[in-house]
Amino acid sequence: MSSAPHAPAPGDSLAARLRHEAGINLNHCYQCGKCAAGCPVAEDMDNTSCQTLRLLQMERPELDRRVLESEAIWLCLGCETCSTRCPQEVEVAKVMDYVREASLALDLAHPRSRDILAFHRAFLDSIRATGRLFEIGLVANYKLRSRHLLKDVNLAPKMYVRGKLPLLPHFIKGRSGMKRIFQLTLGRKR
C-alpha cells in the first residue's frame, strides 16, 4: 500500500500535484521508453514522452520548468497509444493534459505552441457563443489570432461547393447555460 499523499502546497512539484489531484503516481514509470517508441509525434518532440516523465519524476523545480516550457506537451495529440501500451499502466496522455494546463496557468507555454493554442481558443470561443461549433467562425477567429490570414484559402471554396461550410451558425437554446459553464471552468483563462 502506498502512503496517502499529502495535500500539495502551491510550491509543490508537478509530480506531487499529479498524484494528489489526478491520482497518477509517476514513481510507477520505470523508464522503459515504450511510450516514446509508439508515439506518432515522438520524432518531432523536444522531450520524448519518457523524458517528460523522467523530468517530472525528479521533482525539482528547474526540471519541472523544462517540462512546462517544452514544445512537446503541445505536440501531444492525446491519441492514447502511450497509455494503452504502458506496462506500468501510467496514464501518460493524462499527464500531458495536466502539464499543459499547468503551463498555461503559469504563462510558460512554448512560443511555437501559439498557433495550436490560438486554434483551441478560437474553437472554444465559437461554442461559448453559440453552443455548437461554427466552422467558418472558427477559421476566421483562428486566422485573426494566429495572423495566418492566407492559410488554406483554396480549401474554403471547395468545401463550400460541396456543402461542407454552412454560412450561418446554429444557435442552441441553452446559450446562457453554456456561458455559465465557461465562466465556472475556464473563467478568465484566455
Binding site: 515504450k34 516514446a36 517508441a37 520524432e43 522531450n47 520524448t48 501500451r85
Partner: peptide
Amino acid sequence: IRGRVSRIYEEDGQLIVKGADTLMGGEPV
C-alpha cells in the same frame, strides 16, 4: 538497446520493430 518495443508489424516480408533507445533520451528506433 535499452528500451521496450512498442509495436511490431509486417511490411514487405520483413518485421518492423518499433522501439526506443532510452539511453538516447527515448529516441524512437
